[in-house]
């Protein structure tokens, strides 16, 4: 089985330079940035922290003619509590998310995901917007945002629109964004009382992308699950919600047999592949374990308040 796994181009193509020529722009405002993208019509790439894009350019997988660096656009770097929910700017660094008290207290699965990503340097560079727009099936911020039913905002010269995060991922490396759009913020509704959530990840090392990652959120009243949400990453072409397992859990008391059954159902909703990080079989088996653990932790947090 292992012999059928092709080596990653990252290991064979990488050198100490970027073997791609491009023109570089560093717009000072969001307006300027979307103007540039509309002018370059799909031949430009947006650069945020660069922890995905620069690696892709180094191995020649992405060859933009123009790079529009939005790295220092401060107007997209914020964590704001507003009436309708928490707003996080697309350029907010993972390190800032991990250090935010508001996020740790109110949206703990997102805190746990950010903390589990890369090392400190990667988190001081990488942004939440970059993690989503890169659209890796293993993106760690995706499962928490999916169980919180977040929405994202995209802006272009044609105007702005909101996209539910559950409709944002279209395939490996493909998001719902048009090439002239910039992701500007993530909006997370406040979770009702008696809701608990959790994020868990299994990876080869603490620095690596997930073999499988899982987030769960549960709302409990008088010992009964009113609703549960489960999202899994790296087990399908995009991060997914386990909708059948969620439907099964609604209205049930969360005993060990119910947890085990929900995990079986969730695993049956995955479509994993075998690649350099893991085999499909292992991913499906570990999905069950992570779903069970995430449900138990989320439930405990829901009832303890």
């Amino acid at each position: 089985m292992a012999s059928r796994v092709r080596p990653s181009p990252i290991n064979t193509m990488n050198t100490h330079i970027i073997p791609v020529r491009f023109e570089y722009f560093a717009p000072k405002t969001l307006n300027e940035a979307v103007d540039l993208l509309s002018r370059f019509r799909g031949r430009a790439k947006v650069l945020a922290g660069g922890t995905d894009l620069v690696v892709q350019m180094k191995v020649g997988r992405v060859r933009p003619e123009y790079v529009v660096s939005i790295r220092w656009l401060r107007e997209l770097d914020f964590i704001d509590t507003r009436e309708d929910g928490l707003h996080i700017g697309a350029l907010t660094k993972l390190r800032r998310i991990e250090k935010s008290d508001v996020i740790r207290r109110g949206f703990i699965a997102l805190y746990e995901a950010a903390k589990a990503m890369g090392g400190v340097q990667v988190r001081c560079m990488g942004t939440v917007g970059g993690n989503l727009c890169n659209a890796s099936p293993a993106a760690d911020t995706a499962p928490p945002l999916m169980v919180y039913e977040a929405r994202v905002k995209a802006v272009s010269t044609r105007g702005e629109r909101e996209i539910p995060i559950t409709k944002f991922f279209k395939g490996p490396g493909k998001s719902a964004l048009e090439p002239d759009e910039i992701l500007t913020e993530v909006m997370i509704p406040y979770q009702p009382a008696n809701t608990g959530s959790a994020f868990l990840k299994v990876a080869r090392t603490s620095m690596d992308l997930a073999k499988v990652n899982v987030a769960a959120a549960i709302n409990v009243r008088e010992g009964v699950v009113r609703w549960a949400r489960i999202a899994l990453g790296a087990v399908a072409p995009t991060p997914i919600r386990a909708l059948k397992a969620e439907a099964y859990l609604a209205g049930k008391e969360l005993g060990e047999d119910v947890i085990a059954r929900a995990a079986e159902i969730a695993a049956s909703e995955t479509r994993p592949i075998t690649d350099v990080r893991s085999t499909a079989w292992y991913r499906r088996e570990v999905s069950k374990v992570l779903v069970k653990d995430a449900l138990r932790i989320a439930y405990g947090r829901a009832v303890r308040g």
């Binding site: 100490h16 560093a26 922890t51 180094k58």
Partner: peptide
């Protein structure tokens, strides 16, 4: 050269970043 090892770490505005993944222009 791909962000995995930290040998290239420098401080940028006081924060540790990887100089192998940072454009000089930035």
């Amino acid at each position: 050269g791909i962000g995995e090892c930290g040998a290239c770490t420098v401080l940028l505005d006081g924060e540790p970043v990887l100089s192998c993944l940072t454009l000089a222009a930035d």
